[in-house]
Design a protein around this nucleic acid. Structure first.
Lengths: 137, 137
DNA sequence: TTATTCTATCGTAATGATTCCGATTTGTAA
DNA sequence: TTACAAATCGGAATCATTACGATAGAATAA
């Protein structure tokens, strides 16, 4: 998803346009990996000195509800990345820089047989490690 | 893993036997599902009024390091279950009661080809939903 | 059994991430 | 431009988790 699409979703749902929201969105669009609330705060601080925690968390949460961002937990902190709307897939996540790589394999098809009588509401398949760029150090 | 095996691991590594530790271990052995620090605290309180947070968290962390417990993150809280030593597998996890069911499918074999140049350090495959017992309500 | 030593636990304070709230500001539609 | 709802601010509150000095308790050997 790109910034324009995300802003369109906001508008359609009746949420207001603010420069802060646009900047948050373009931060995630350019990141192409998982980022924490703290990362975002540090990015926003220079342009908006004294920006409130509330603004950061409220918008992250809102964007999550609207499926503009997707979230995962990495060592005790929620991390977010711009949503991949194209097709269902999973991610390799670099533990050091948070960059992601698409994994097209989804194990769910071969699993449902093992779970008759269970209601399946979601699943998570993530691979953790180091991306090529983070292996030099 | 059962309580005796777990106590043996502790002894081998030079950690002391205490009744609290035995009770913590049998709690997880009998649970056969994921439980939070809070769940454990509530279980321990009646037998040990005023038991310290420190004891709860220190032991959970210790047991995790010794691979007696395995951990996962469920809605912002760490949850633990007794370790399955038998063979590599994943879990279905009931969102309501935390009960788990083994999933023998592991997607990693079919994935490594997509990740040359990436160092793989771990992976997570979990399925979330409702177990048969929790569907009645 | 007793002394010694090292670990475990207690009680509580500190930390870190996140949420909440009343007051104020700012988009937006009329 | 006005009016109103939504967004933000500033900061306190909450929740899970960690840290720490002081005390209690398990293991070991004399």
């Amino acid at each position: 998803m790109n910034t324009e699409e995300a802003l369109k979703v906001l508008k359609e749902k009746g949420y207001k346009y603010t420069k802060k929201r646009k900047d948050i969105l373009s931060y995630f669009v350019n990141a192409d990996g998982y980022r924490s609330a703290k990362d975002l705060l540090q990015f926003m601080e220079p342009s908006y000195p004294g920006i409130s925690f509330d603004t950061i968390y409220r918008n992250l949460h809102l964007f999550g509800r609207l499926s503009i961002l997707e979230a995962t937990e990495l060592n005790g902190e929620k991390h977010f990345r711009i949503s991949c709307v194209s097709h269902h897939h999973h991610h390799f996540i670099c533990k050091q820089c948070g960059v992601t790589k698409e994994i097209d394999t989804c194990p769910m098809e071969s699993v449902t047989g093992e779970l008759s009588n269970f209601v399946i509401e979601g699943h998570k398949f993530e691979i953790y490690g180091r991306c090529p760029a983070c292996q030099v150090s």
